[in-house]
């Protein structure tokens, strides 16, 4: 079943392609930053900011907004760029990424840029904060609250024990307004997740903690949108969408290569012309 019109999908795809190139340009300009996760999650950010989220870029603190909590703060080039294209701040400002005095800190800071829900970077604590926000919302508005709390986490990040403290609590409290999206790109700094410290069977682990689990393609807007709509409908449990993504998606020279988690080693010489998004 498809909810997204094919015209809408075309618009999102074009947006994603523009944003990917802008991410590359801003990271190149900063001469540091994390490419693989940012490009891999671009489609998720685009769907959220241009379709799913209840938000107002001109009034970032609007009380009725959904909350987007980015736990793996290092992929913030994707967050910043999508926010700029959504109208939160001028696209021009992306050139200041990671520079002195910039609102676009190397890892997001809540107080620097309105629209950032929480400061993050040190891995493993975003999910707890999302749980706290959802709990506070339930205290104030009860179980029929129609604000949703979307928390994006990296897959390698799930090796941090604190996540599982939060996961057990969300299961206990049946926080159905909490929707977690895991960036399942299979890489982390030291290599492939299953070599560094295996996460599988990831679905079984979440289910054992009383979560509803949906697997989705992280690059298929239709599939992702279906997953989010299903997650919004599930009432008895929190939902995790395991979004299967390709790290560095769209940057041909870097796709699937864990060495691109951060900026590539200076020894990897890439011609300027290769820093181009090919999709």
């Amino acid at each position: 079943m498809s909810y997204l019109h094919s015209d809408k999908i075309k618009i999102l795809e074009t947006k994603a392609s523009e944003i990917r190139q802008a991410i590359i340009d801003s990271v190149l300009n900063a001469e540091s930053g994390h490419i693989a996760g940012a490009l891999g999650m671009t489609d998720v950010f685009v769907l959220l900011y241009f379709h799913t989220l209840k938000h107002n870029p001109k009034d970032p603190l609007w009380e009725e907004r959904d909350r987007l909590i980015l736990s793996n703060g290092h992929i913030c080039p994707a967050l910043y760029t999508t926010m700029a294209y959504a109208g939160y701040f001028p696209i021009e400002e992306l050139k200041t990424l990671r520079k002195f005095g910039s609102r676009l800190q190397g890892h997001p800071h809540r107080e620097f840029l309105p629209g950032i829900e929480t400061s993050s970077g040190p891995l493993g604590s975003g999910l707890s904060q999302a749980v706290g926000m959802t709990l506070a919302d339930r205290i104030d508005r009860g179980r029929s609250s129609n604000r949703f709390f979307y928390c994006l986490v990296g897959d390698g990040e799930l090796q941090e024990g604190q996540n599982w403290e939060a996961i057990q609590m969300a299961g206990k409290e049946r926080l159905h307004n909490l929707i977690v999206i895991v960036d399942r790109n299979n890489i982390q700094i030291d290599g492939f997740t299953e070599d560094v410290m295996p996460l599988e069977p990831l679905q079984d682990k979440f289910e054992a903690f009383n979560w509803h689990v949906i697997n989705a393609s992280g690059h298929d807007f239709d599939d992702l949108d279906d997953a989010i709509i299903q997650a919004q409908a599930v009432f008895a449990k929190p939902t995790v969408i395991i979004a299967h993504t390709i790290p560095s998606k769209g940057l041909g020279v870097a796709e699937r290569d864990f060495r691109w988690h951060g900026m590539p080693n200076k020894k990897i010489k890439i011609e300027k012309s290769k820093w181009k998004i090919t999709i």
Partner: peptide
């Protein structure tokens, strides 16, 4: 009781859950 949260033995998550609640206007 409606304003009391039992975390279980999870002090790390407790600090961050409280941060999230404060972001929503609570004083935890």
């Amino acid at each position: 009781p409606e304003r009391f949260i039992e975390m279980g033995i999870a002090e790390q998550s407790m600090a961050s859950v409280a941060s999230g609640m404060a972001a929503m206007g609570k004083i935890p």
